[in-house]
Design a protein around this nucleic acid. Structure first.
Length: 480
RNA sequence: GUCCCCAUCGUCUAGUCAGGCCUAGGACACCAGAUUUUCAUUCUGGCGACAGGGGUUCGAAUCCCCUUGGGGACGCCA
């Protein structure tokens, strides 16, 4: 039987790291098994769902390269893929459940339920519904309905316990006496998540459900519901949750960054994929740097960790640097350019530079950054309006001598000709007594306004004569 | 409160299922040194863990029990 998985986000917010990892694992599982991935939008919560979130989710997933075979935008045999458009199917399924005696109407009010819960707590029991409306006679129900009373519909749990095999957790057993019959349709007639998910997973032929561990306790309900509707329940794999630095779950509420924010910081999509894959999974060897293709081959759900992991941005930074350095030069330049354009963070003065020049500048920094965001900062070396940093270097004794020597070299360079570090170096040797750090650090600061950066011999040819003279003038004012 | 899940360096993990090859391996971070006349990179070295207690066994990180700690769930949210 071929594998079919799904990623089913609810569009009540932006995708965050936890969601993305679930999506990634589903994608990787599909790929590793030669199966299909379905994208389904679970927008049954009318209050909180927004279409702008749907758009963003599609965009984010595409950016990460997590492509789906069936979904709201590409269609498929089980369309539609927005849950809100499947209402008729769901209601029909519910009718059948009622007819078959799997479900019944419940007239209890929220207040009634609160009382019940309090009762349970007092007795040291888990809060649950006591199934009281199960025994309502058909006439009772009819009467109350005619009277205009609103009723929710509950699913009957008859079994005393249920055990299932979880792909990552192994055998899991639940005492069903702890659960009350649960609601599958609200009094306003809209189906709940449980009903919608089970019907959709079943009707779409989903074979494996990889989801967050927070759904573990829902699984017995879902298995029962699916069976009652005549579907074969899928195999479940519950992924442990990702924690933030404080050890608390990474979620919207805890202020987890949206994927969009990481993109803004200049992480490559493959970096996010690579890092997230490593969070809770390993192939069992020491390999850590993966391309997407390699992940697709190597991934194995059975090797997913049971315990939760803490998201560590520092390790992702390291991976980011590794991936950037792996890029072919022209690919790197293109991606850097795209980033600068998309984030619109190239300074006005640098925008005036010819494209070729910007390209060669970008290349200089390739080995020197861990994320594209750093590029923006480094680029100020070429920006005439950038302020001077590390002034103290120039204040050291004897620096004016160096500044003067550099100035005379720069002045000697013909207009339109680029400067050459070896020539400058030669001249400095003759006219300046200082050498080593004492010579090169002030030289660097005077010309670039910063005490560190790539090799001078790479920077120099791209620095404009006017800019240098300008900076040297200011440098000589403060030079010691 | 009740139920469920989890537990190896600060962090991510290998090793656990099939006990001995583990005086527990790798990576990030950190510290020190070397290279790079700066930063980054690279290289070398260092620091650093089987949560605790009981069993089982010739032998336990690995199997069992208890304790502790962490997390999740208990919605007319998904």
């Amino acid at each position: 039987m071929s594998v079919k998985v799904r990623f089913a986000p609810s569009p009540t917010g932006y995708l965050h790291i936890g969601n993305v990892r679930t999506a990634l694992f589903n994608y990787l599982y599909a790929k590793s098994q030669g199966g299909k991935l379905v994208l389904r939008i679970e927008d049954t919560d009318k209050e909180r769902s927004k279409t702008e979130y749907i758009d963003q989710i599609l965009k984010d997933l595409n950016w990460l390269g997590l492509h789906w075979d069936e979904g709201p935008d590409v269609g498929g045999a089980s369309a539609p893929y927005e849950q809100s458009k499947r209402l008729d199917f769901h209601l029909k399924a519910v009718d059948q459940l009622i007819q078959q005696g799997h479900a019944y109407r419940c007239f209890c009010t929220p207040q009634d339920l609160d009382v019940m819960k309090e009762e349970c707590k007092k007795n040291g029991q888990p809060p649950r519904y006591d199934n009281r409306c199960r025994n309502l006679s058909e006439d009772d129900v009819k009467q109350r309905l005619e009277k205009g009373d609103k009723a929710a519909i509950r699913f009957k749990i008859d079994e005393p316990e249920l055990t299932f095999e979880d792909l990552v957790r192994g055998s899991v057993r639940f005492d069903l006496n702890l659960f009350g019959d649960f609601i599958i349709v609200r009094p306003d007639g809209t189906p709940t998540f449980h009903l919608a998910v089970c019907y959709d997973d079943g009707s779409m032929g989903i074979t494996h459900v990889l989801r967050g561990e927070d759904h573990l306790a829902n699984t017995p309900k879902h298995i029962l519901l699916m069976k009652a509707m005549g579907f074969t329940p899928p195999q479940y794999a519950h992924l442990s949750l990702i924690m933030g630095k404080g050890g608390k779950v990474l979620s919207k509420r805890e202020g987890a960054k949206s994927l969009e924010e990481y993109r803004k910081l200049g992480y490559l999509p493959e970096v996010v994929d690579n890092y997230l894959a490593l969070l809770g999974w390993s192939a069992g060897d020491d390999k850590e740097i993966y391309t997407m293709e390699e992940l697709e081959k190597a991934f194995d759900v059975k090797r997913v960790n049971k315990s939760s992991a803490i998201f560590d941005i520092e390790k992702m930074d390291w991976l980011s640097g590794e991936h950037i350095r792996m890029l072919e030069d022209d690919v790197y330049v293109q991606k850097a350019l795209d980033y600068l354009k998309e984030q619109n963070c190239l300074s006005e003065s640098l925008k005036l530079l010819p494209l070729d020049e910007i390209k060669s500048i970008l290349l200089i920094f390739k080995d020197n950054i861990t994320r594209f965001e750093e590029l923006v900062d480094r680029l100020t070396i070429y920006d005439p309006n950038a302020p001077m940093q590390d002034e103290f270097v120039l204040q050291q004794e004897g620096v004016s001598q160096i500044v003067e020597a550099v100035k005379s070299y720069v002045e000697s360079v013909a207009d339109g000709e680029s400067m050459d570090f070896s020539v400058l170096n030669q001249q400095l040797k003759e006219s300046v007594s200082k050498k080593g750090k004492e010579l090169f650090l002030p030289l660097r600061v005077a010309l670039t306004y910063r005490s560190h950066g790539p090799e001078m011999k790479r920077i120099l040819p791209l620095l404009k004569k006017d800019l240098c003279l300008d900076r040297l003038k200011k440098a000589s004012e403060i030079a010691g």
